[in-house]
Write a protein that binds this DNA or RNA. Structure first.
Length: 604
RNA sequence: GGCUCCAUAGUUCAAUGGAUAGAAUAGCGGUUUCCUAAACCGUAGAUCCAGGUUCGAUUCCUGGUGGAGCUACCA
């Protein structure tokens, strides 16, 4: 169990204060942070908060604490004071020892599992079965999968879950359009992925519906009225009622079309590299939701309006009234989500937390969901957490399906992999590999570029997806990181070919500690931080922290690699150390990128 | 109208209330007889506005301005 260096130093500084000034400062008064690049030192104590306690100027306070610390701690080499900042420099032996400790850990970065803990549920993806997945879904899936991986790395039990929105008026629209205009077309007959085919009929419905409305407007009807009374809409609504009533023809059609969609989704999920432990279907959970609503209605938690629709009054909470069942008795989105939440709680005998990876346009929905559950008597609704991620926009603005500006998930993946192939062929580094090996590497690079491009951004923020920039493989990109990994692997391969070894010899220790060069020390520092970054990413549900860490690590390694030779180093201890440094860097890149769902090739 | 979120180089992104606000990309200029140049180095360029709290504010508070989202018997 490695202790955070900052925590150790803070504790020591606290002791020093007690000795010097007779009082132990509060924890938050002891601020230890990495020393900024332009100053000499490794860690810095900010002494401003301590000046009152010391009754001295910042400089005097820092000086006194520095002197005391150096006396007490053998691993502090020297200190210096700049204004109110006490910069501490640790000894080379300290860094060396710390490095060897983490180097010898096979699973460095992971926290041992806490066996009996209740699971963390992570819901992500949540597709509608009426159209194929697009760029927005990609962000959702990547964040969800990565957050689940990060939580696991922090020792939590994780259940990856998905709610498939497989019923509702939107599904009926595509069914209706297929019935009317498809002439029995199937994915096989059309040679098309099932989700794409169904999506086309959803679009077709919208087009025909608009035509009807336009016609009715010409006859002098208001837009709102026309929208409600258009015959196509009425047919779709009737179909939804028939579906809830269990009418066989409707159910058969529904099952047939959904099965096409699932086949298409499975393919997309497989390519994205995401999976689920348990999938829920709205067509099953909505009933549970309706029962909950009916029960709550009896308990007078909810109320009925004169047309028979069921509502919850949230005005006491500063919100509005919210519909839970339509006048015709059919369920809405909220009804289903209530049922799903309760069912999941029961299925897992409770949970530690339930994280919903859902777009920020649904902030209101989740606010309501939590309150309604609480009103219904489910105290655990506090454990629901909406990981509200921002929208993906294109440089031209929002994606609009009607205007054909939606970026299709499959198309995008194809495009990225194709770019990776073109670029690799141009560089010619994979000459001599079989087509299958090449294809695998192109896929890894293309997908790595896509995933990293999306995950490096703070999930909570809206992001702009610029297709041109996304296929740029230089700079802060996935391929840049993958490239460094491949380079490290190449060095290690060569070292092995030359019969070199760099593992510690049993019992002999590592010999006299060699003095660390600046670049080596910086690299060690960053490597030592990894565990802490994984922990923080778990607390914040933020893959971006891992992504940015990997980039920082790789950048530092590339500088080290550029400035110092590894295999050409004459001093044996030094050479072995650099090989170990390279190996661990490679391992950490592999682990870190793995937490983002990104594979790193051994050569590229 | 109400509620929520956002605003940082030309552009895309960073920065637990701490020192001279970091990167990438685009621009300009360099580095390869040597472990993978998808690399490395140099140069130039930014905190929306006005107040407030603080020893110290990109960060916290108030008020503006600009943008996004929600406020559906859609999901």
């Amino acid at each position: 169990m490695e202790l955070k260096i900052e925590a150790i130093l803070a504790e020591k500084a606290g002791k020093a204060c007690k000795e010097l000034f007779g009082e132990l400062p509060a924890e938050k008064q002891l601020q230890i942070q990495p020393t900024r690049k332009d100053f000499k030192g490794d860690y810095t104590l900010v002494v401003f908060p301590l000046t009152r306690l010391a009754g001295k100027s910042p400089e005097q306070t820092a000086e006194a604490i520095g002197e005391q610390l150096q006396k007490d701690c053998s691993f502090i080499n020297s200190y210096n004071v700049v204004k109110g900042f006490l910069n501490l420099e640790l000894t080379g032996a300290f860094w060396k020892d710390s490095f060897e400790k983490i180097f010898s850990r096979e699973d460095y970065g992971f926290q041992a599992a806490a066996g009996d803990e209740l699971p963390y549920l992570v819901e992500y993806s949540s597709p509608n079965t009426n159209k194929p997945l697009h760029l927005g879904h990609i962000r959702n899936n990547l964040i969800g999968y990565s957050v689940a991986s990060i939580l696991k790395a922090n020792g939590h039990n994780v259940v990856k879950t998905n709610i498939v929105n497989d019923r509702g008026i939107h599904i009926c629209k595509s069914m209706l359009a297929w019935q009317k205009w498809a002439n029995g077309e199937t994915p096989d007959s059309a040679g098309m992925k099932g989700d794409l085919l169904v999506g086309n009929y959803y679009v077709r419905f919208d087009k025909e519906f608009k035509k009807q409305v336009a016609g009715m407007l010409e006859q002098g009807m208001s837009e709102e009225e026309a929208g409600k009374k258009a015959p196509l809409m009425a047919e779709a609504q009737q179909m939804l009622k028939d579906w809830e009533a269990g009418k066989p023809e409707v159910l058969n059609l529904w099952e047939k079309m959904n099965s096409w969609v699932y086949k298409g989704f499975d393919e997309t999920y497989r390519r994205l590299g995401v999976d689920f432990d348990k999938i829920y279907y709205e067509s099953e959970t909505y009933k549970h939701g309706r029962e909950l609503v009916e029960k709550a209605l009896k308990e007078k938690v909810l109320f009925t309006k004169e047309n028979g629709s069921v509502w919850v009054d949230l005005r006491d909470e500063g919100l509005d009234e919210k519909l839970l069942l339509r006048a015709d008795g059919t369920a809405v989105y909220m009804t289903q989500d209530l049922g799903t939440a309760v069912q999941r709680y029961e299925d897992n005998n409770g949970f530690e937390s339930h994280i919903y990876v859902v777009g920020n346009e649904q902030n209101y929905h989740f606010q309501v969901l939590k309150i309604v559950l609480k009103k219904m008597g489910f105290d655990w609704s506090d454990k629901l957490y909406h990981l509200s991620y921002g929208m993906v926009e294109l440089p031209e603005g929002k994606m609009k399906s009607r205007e054909g500006t939606v970026v299709d998930a499959d198309d995008l993946m194809d495009e990225m992999i194709k770019t990776a192939r073109d670029m690799s062929e141009e560089l010619g580094k994979l000459d001599g590999y079989t087509d299958q090996e090449k294809k695998k590497i192109y896929t890894q690079i293309g997908m790595g570029a896509l995933k990293y491009f999306i995950l490096k951004i703070d999930p909570r923020k809206n992001m702009t997806f610029n297709p041109r920039e996304s296929v740029d493989f230089n700079g802060n990109t996935g391929p840049f990181i993958q490239y460094t990994h491949a380079r490290i692997k190449s060095v290690l391969r060569k070292a092995r070919e030359q019969g070199l070894s760099w593992e510690a010899e049993a019992g002999s220790g590592y010999g006299e500690p060699v003095a660390l060069l600046d670049k080596e020390k910086e690299l060690v520092k960053i490597l030592l931080n990894f565990r802490e970054v994984v922990s923080e990413a778990g607390l914040q549900f933020s893959p971006a922290l891992i992504a940015n860490y990997c980039y920082e690590l790789v950048k530092e390694y590339n500088q080290f690699y550029h400035d110092h030779t590894i295999l050409g180093e004459k001093d044996e201890l030094q050479r072995k150390f650099r090989l170990r440094l390279s190996e661990l860097t490679g391992r950490v890149i592999n682990t870190g990128m793995g937490l983002l769902g990104i594979e790193v090739p051994d050569r590229m």
